[in-house]
Computed example of a mutant assay.
Amino acid sequence: MKKILLLGIGNVLYADEGIGVHFVNYIKDKYQFSHQTDQVDIVDGGTLAQGLIPMISQYDYLIVVDTVNSIDAEPGEVYFFDFDDAPAEIDWQGSAHEVEMLQTLNMMDIVGDRPQTFVLGVTPTVIEPMILGLTPNLHAAIPVMEHTLLSHLTDLGFSQQIMNNITIDQVIPDAYKRGCYVDA
């Protein structure tokens, strides 16, 4: 059995910075996934980064959802790539949690604990404190991100069923009440 982790990273209090968290909560609330042998777990990792290592290391496969910066990219552009083969234009220096997540994955790689990792990223428009929600550019990227993720999971043999016909706007107001808590 392969254990897959869909991990949303971000700070929901900084507008577009919270896309990873909002997106995985949306997917978790909207879909139920099934597979003959494998399992997918969906986790809001917030900004814990290194605190997530004990949890991440228990998985065989990781999909990180987060903001990414890219040279000459327009806000709302979606990227999906293998962490081991990141496009040259991807810049991880956008925010403190991105750098910390990159360092976390690199540390796990050094000790051989990092699972096969893919990144579903989107370039942010606004990263400002105390704004709960997404800008129009990132809001418009949600269908592309959703299609990309569902296609990838289908390629891995998962089927999905819509359990709740919701929008991401219905998930965002409660984002600060959710989150990952890792026992140390």
Results as ranks from 00 to 15, higher is better:
residue 61 Y to H: 14
residue 61 Y to E: 12
residue 61 Y to R: 05
residue 61 Y to F: 14
residue 61 Y to M: 04
residue 61 Y to G: 01
residue 62 L to P: 00
residue 62 L to W: 03
residue 62 L to D: 05
residue 63 I to K: 01
residue 63 I to N: 01
residue 63 I to V: 13
residue 65 V to L: 09
residue 66 D to E: 10
residue 66 D to T: 06
residue 66 D to K: 00
residue 67 T to M: 10
residue 67 T to A: 10
residue 67 T to D: 03
residue 68 V to G: 08
residue 68 V to F: 05
residue 69 N to K: 09
residue 69 N to A: 07
residue 69 N to Q: 12
residue 70 S to N: 01
residue 70 S to H: 09
residue 70 S to Q: 08
residue 70 S to W: 03
residue 70 S to A: 15
residue 70 S to L: 07
residue 71 I to N: 05
residue 71 I to F: 13
residue 72 D to T: 08
residue 72 D to W: 01
residue 72 D to Q: 12
residue 73 A to M: 01
residue 74 E to M: 08
residue 75 P to M: 04
residue 76 G to K: 07
residue 77 E to S: 13
residue 78 V to S: 06
residue 78 V to G: 06
residue 79 Y to K: 12
residue 79 Y to C: 09
residue 79 Y to T: 06
residue 80 F to G: 05
residue 80 F to H: 04
residue 80 F to Y: 09
residue 80 F to W: 11
residue 80 F to T: 12
residue 81 F to D: 04
residue 81 F to H: 04
residue 82 D to Q: 04
residue 82 D to V: 03
residue 84 D to I: 09
residue 85 D to R: 08
residue 86 A to R: 12
residue 86 A to K: 11
residue 86 A to E: 11
residue 87 P to E: 03
residue 87 P to R: 01
residue 88 A to M: 14
residue 88 A to T: 13
residue 88 A to Q: 13
residue 88 A to I: 13
residue 89 E to Q: 14
residue 90 I to E: 00
residue 90 I to F: 03
residue 90 I to C: 08
residue 92 W to L: 11
residue 92 W to D: 09
residue 93 Q to S: 15
residue 93 Q to G: 13
residue 93 Q to H: 11
residue 93 Q to F: 15
residue 93 Q to C: 02
residue 94 G to D: 05
residue 95 S to K: 02
residue 96 A to F: 06
residue 96 A to D: 11
residue 96 A to Q: 09
residue 97 H to A: 06
residue 97 H to I: 04
residue 97 H to F: 02
residue 98 E to H: 14
residue 99 V to Q: 15
residue 99 V to S: 01
residue 99 V to Y: 09
residue 99 V to E: 12
residue 100 E to L: 13
residue 100 E to P: 00
residue 100 E to V: 11
residue 100 E to D: 14
residue 101 M to E: 08
residue 101 M to W: 08
residue 102 L to F: 15
residue 103 Q to H: 10
residue 103 Q to K: 05
residue 103 Q to I: 11
residue 103 Q to W: 10
residue 103 Q to S: 12
residue 104 T to K: 02
residue 104 T to R: 02
residue 105 L to T: 03
residue 105 L to G: 02
residue 106 N to G: 00
residue 107 M to R: 08
residue 107 M to P: 01
residue 107 M to Q: 11
residue 107 M to W: 10
residue 107 M to S: 14
residue 107 M to A: 13
residue 107 M to N: 13
residue 107 M to C: 10
residue 108 M to K: 02
residue 108 M to C: 03
residue 108 M to A: 05
residue 109 D to E: 15
residue 109 D to Q: 13
residue 109 D to L: 15
residue 109 D to W: 14
residue 109 D to N: 09
